[in-house]
Simulated assay, not measured.
Amino acid sequence: MTEFILDPQQIEAKSMSIIRSGLTRNWLEKEYPVVERLIHTSGDPSLEQVIAIHPQAIDCGLQALKNGSRVITDVEMVRAGIAKEKLKSLGGSVECYLNAPEIAQQAKEWGITRSMTAFRMHPERLQGAIIAVGNAPTALLEVLRLAEDPETRPALIIGIPVGFVGAKESKDLLWQHQEIPSITVLGTRGGSPLAATVVNALIYTALRKVNEIT
């Protein structure tokens, strides 16, 4: 009979040890928490090959969290997966405008998706924020458009939409914009759990740094 590890901390430690031992790319030490948690959440070691982390992404994300930055998500599922109490302890909050009453009607008038509309109607909220897109490629396209203006440029874009229509292309476009710090998973794979797990990896790293100082 198989003996299972039942202690949550032991399970996580063992999982991360297995993941770390199987990594094949030369990641920076500060990138490991993001890489390991993406693989852990997906259960797919091959995901490592399509993870793309901008050289300034980790530092910019941690600085934003240190400054009490807001995290803005494209859908409620990403927002639900974020460690909101931990983020709150850093002075931050999570926002998602998708289900605001005015969004559906405005999206219909503009002839675009609700997720795209949600960002377009709140451009002033993006400056200095961490944007986490895990579902809608159109939302990522709108964020990239808004990021062209320094007044609406986020501190970090976590762009991991999933699917076969526009997802790969939107992430390729994100990665081409090297003037904007970003974290993505290239190709068709992605999803809300992966976007949320990147945010959480940054949150827990930021909390560790705070604890080390205090």
Rank of each mutant, 00 (worst) to 15 (best):
Met1Thr: 14
Ile5Phe: 04
Asp7Ile: 01
Pro8Thr: 07
Gln10Val: 09
Ile11Met: 14
Ser15Met: 12
Ser15His: 06
Met16Cys: 02
Ile19Tyr: 11
Ile19Thr: 03
Ile19Glu: 06
Arg20Leu: 15
Arg25Glu: 12
Asn26Asp: 15
Trp27Tyr: 14
Glu29Pro: 01
Tyr32Lys: 10
Pro33Ile: 13
Val34Gln: 03
Val35Arg: 08
Ile39Pro: 13
Ile39Glu: 05
His40Ser: 10
Thr41Met: 14
Ser42Gly: 15
Asp44Tyr: 03
Pro45Thr: 03
Ser46Asn: 12
Ala52Lys: 09
Ile53Asn: 04
His54Asp: 15
Pro55Gln: 03
Gln56Asn: 10
Ala57Lys: 00
Ala57Tyr: 12
Ala57Leu: 05
Ala57Asp: 10
Cys60Glu: 15
Gly61Pro: 04
Leu62Ser: 03
Leu65Gly: 00
Lys66Gln: 14
Ser69Ile: 02
Arg70Val: 09
Arg70Tyr: 04
Ile72Arg: 03
Thr73Asp: 08
Asp74Phe: 07
Val75Trp: 02
Glu76Phe: 02
Met77Phe: 10
Arg79Asn: 10
Ala80Arg: 13
Ala80Trp: 00
Glu85Thr: 14
Lys86Thr: 07
Gly91Asn: 10
Gly91Ala: 07
Gly92Glu: 14
Glu95Phe: 04
Glu95Ala: 02
Tyr97Ile: 00
Asn99Ile: 00
Pro101Met: 12
Thr113Ile: 06
Met116Tyr: 09
Ala118Thr: 02
Phe119Gly: 08
Phe119Val: 08
Pro123Val: 05
Pro123Ser: 09
Leu126Gly: 06
Gly128Thr: 11
Ala129Met: 00
Val133Leu: 03
Pro137Gln: 08
Leu141Trp: 02
Leu141Gly: 08
Arg145Cys: 01
Glu148Val: 01
Asp149His: 10
Glu151Cys: 01
Glu151Lys: 14
Pro154Phe: 07
Ile158Lys: 08
Ile158Val: 15
Ile160Thr: 04
Val165Leu: 14
Val165His: 03
Ala167Gly: 11
Lys171Leu: 07
Leu173Arg: 13
Trp175Thr: 13
Trp175Tyr: 09
Gln178Ala: 14
Glu179Gln: 15
Pro181Val: 12
Ser182Ile: 03
Ile183Asn: 00
Thr184Gly: 11
Arg189Asp: 04
Arg189His: 12
Arg189Gly: 06
Gly190Lys: 12
Pro193His: 10
Pro193Trp: 12
Ala195Ser: 08
Ala196Asp: 02
Thr197Asn: 10
Val199Ala: 06
Val199Met: 05
Asn200His: 04
Ala201Asn: 00
Ala206Leu: 02
Ala206Cys: 06
Leu207Lys: 01
Val210Ile: 05
Val210Gly: 00
Val210Trp: 00
Thr214Phe: 13
